[in-house]
Design a binder for these strands. Structure first.
Length: 497
RNA sequence: GCUCCAUUCGUCUAGGGGCCUAGGACGUGGCCCUCUCAAGGCCAAAACACGGGUUCGAAUCCCGUAUGGAGCACCA
């Protein structure tokens, strides 16, 4: 029926706070679909709630989307043939079309105040009826309107929903959905402040902007019949609908910005996640790539460009999906391991500097291959390799130096003899160090791991670090010897105390 | 309460009547590798909500029940 229409899809967030992770997923599905079919992906800002709109939210949305690499073909910042792309700049359209509905008997004016509506709703509930509006203004005459207007009473425009029959539409994921009209409300279309509600605004715009497919989250299913009735009232051809499953918090329930920090996109940007990993992960939340490798295992790591080659709405999943951060982190690690030294080093710089360290570019590039396989999030580089960028390191407690199965005198001896050997090396390469220190462990009758562990704490302050010898080579002989002698002093003074 | 949507391992999913003794991935456990931690390799445990149909045959189709979710604003 609408197959021949050129594909035009939109992501239409409302600027009421940080970009929501669920919104990113919705945007991504739209983007994927547009790219799959050579269509257009449009960004539209739905700021029709004057009370909730926040100025800074606009940049959170555009910057967040830009970070993910989901580029739009038309939008507020770049314009396009169907602009403007901000609803508060399109008020005339909504007013015009709501007038049209009233003139044609499809909608009516209602003069109840919010307070009155609350009373009506409560009364209905008390009588065992569903809450909501009782349509009392439906049969007001133009004379009534004139009288109320003369009294200066504000009004809203409400949709005249058919009292009987049912409304049917097809969801591309779930199939036919039918709803009895008597369960629907005479929804408000135009508010008393002259702004449209979502119901009116989004579909006027979708029509005017020639949107072919509405891809949005599941919470809109319930109000879709209303939208279909509106399309019928206008005599417009509706777009095709596809509803993606909601994203749930692992505790159950919709993931919300109020309760869950990870609901906000900024959480992932600040948290050391890579955009490639996030978009890859989001592809598998409510959709499935479905390609296998030569071992018959599902391919888990793929780009959004690759995903767009085979993206079809019909293959979206239809059940609520929990957000598995662990899997995201694993994917993030996969992407980190895939990066070249140069690009990874560039990305590691920021978290290091943010934690107050002075980053030497040369050292950074050298430690990158050592760190790569040990972190899942970029931020973890600080804990893993911060000691490379510090003048002084701190050892929490002298006992950290003493390895399991060893005592203080043994540790002191190991440290002293290791320092001696390292000082005497003509070549401070990691292989030369290892060749010198392994025999030492044997000579002392301790395991290599025990000796190396003590040295590790001495030079890094940490019990866990990148490989010891490579680390020492990068630190350089002076720094290493300095840190070992400090560690020896620390242990000695603890002994005498 | 009413309406709608859904129900495969802990989680994300494959599956669209026989190919299913239900496949993959994350996570979990074990082993190997190993200077710590990782990474990597191998192995393992782990699911068709329940009850009725339909059919020669049901995870797949239909109907109930249960459970979960979403929606019922002059918010989107």
């Amino acid at each position: 029926m609408t197959e021949s229409r050129p594909v035009r899809v939109r992501f239409a967030p409302s600027p009421t706070g940080d970009l929501h992770i669920g919104g990113v997923r919705t945007a991504q599905f739209n983007w994927l679909f547009a790219r799959r079919h050579g269509g257009k992906f449009i960004l539209r800002i739905e700021d029709t709630d004057q009370k909730r709109t926040q100025e800074q939210s606009y940049s959170s949305i555009t910057e967040g989307l830009r970070w993910t690499g989901l580029d739009w073909d038309e939008g507020p910042d770049i314009g396009g043939p169907f602009g403007p792309y901000v609803q508060s700049q399109r008020l005339e359209h909504y007013r015009q079309w709501s007038d049209w509905l009233v003139r044609n008997g499809k909608a009516y004016r209602a003069y109840e105040t919010s307070e009155e509506l609350e009373v009506i709703s409560a009364a209905r509930r008390a009588n065992g009826l569903p809450p909501g509006y009782d349509r009392r203004a439906r049969n007001l005459t133009p004379e009534d309107w004139a009288r109320f207007d003369a009294e200066g009473r504000p009004f809203v425009i409400r949709l005249k929903v058919p009292l009987e029959g049912e409304t049917v539409f097809e969801d591309m994921v779930r199939g036919i959905i039918r709803v009895k009209n008597d369960t629907l409300q005479d929804a408000v279309l135009l508010k008393s402040d002259g702004y449209p509600t979502y119901h009116l605004a989004h579909m006027v715009d979708d029509h005017l902007m020639e949107i072919s497919h509405v891809i949005r989250a599941e919470e809109w299913i319930a109000s879709t019949p209303l939208h279909v009735i509106l399309y019928q009232a206008f005599g417009w051809e509706p777009p095709r609908f596809a509803h993606a499953p909601v994203i749930l918090h692992p505790d159950g329930g919709k993931i919300s910005k109020r309760k869950h920090p990870e609901a906000a996109m900024s959480y992932f940007i600040k948290g050391g996640y890579l955009p490639e990993a996030l978009t890859n992960f989001l592809c598998n939340v409510g959709w499935n790539y479905g390609k296998t490798d030569d071992k018959g295992e599902e391919i888990q790591v793929f780009s959004k460009e690759e995903a767009s080659q085979s993206f079809e709405l019909e293959r979206m999943t239809n059940t609520g999906t929990k957000f598995d951060v662990k899997k995201l982190q694993w994917l993030n690690g996969e992407y980190i391991r895939l990066m070249s030294d140069e690009t990874l080093a560039k990305r590691l710089r920021e978290p290091l500097e943010r934690s107050g360290l002075e980053v030497n570019a040369d050292t950074l590039l050298k430690i990158t291959p050592l760190v790569r396989e040990r972190i899942k999030l970029l931020n973890e580089v600080v804990g893993m390799a911060g000691f490379f960028f510090k003048e002084e390191i701190a050892i929490n407690s002298p006992t950290d130096l003493i390895q399991k199965g060893m005592n203080a005198p043994q540790t002191l001896e190991g440290l002293r003899r290791a320092a001696e050997l390292l000082a005497g090396l003509s070549d401070f390469s990691h292989s030369a160090q290892e060749a010198a220190l392994r025999p030492l462990a044997e000579a002392m009758g301790v395991k290599p791991g025990q000796l190396f562990g003590a040295i590790r704490v001495a030079i890094s302050g940490e019990k866990v670090s990148p490989p010891l010898f490579e680390s020492m080579e990068i630190l350089g002989r002076d720094t290493v010897l300095g840190r070992i002698s400090k560690a020896i002093q620390l242990l000695e003074s603890a002994q005498t105390a």
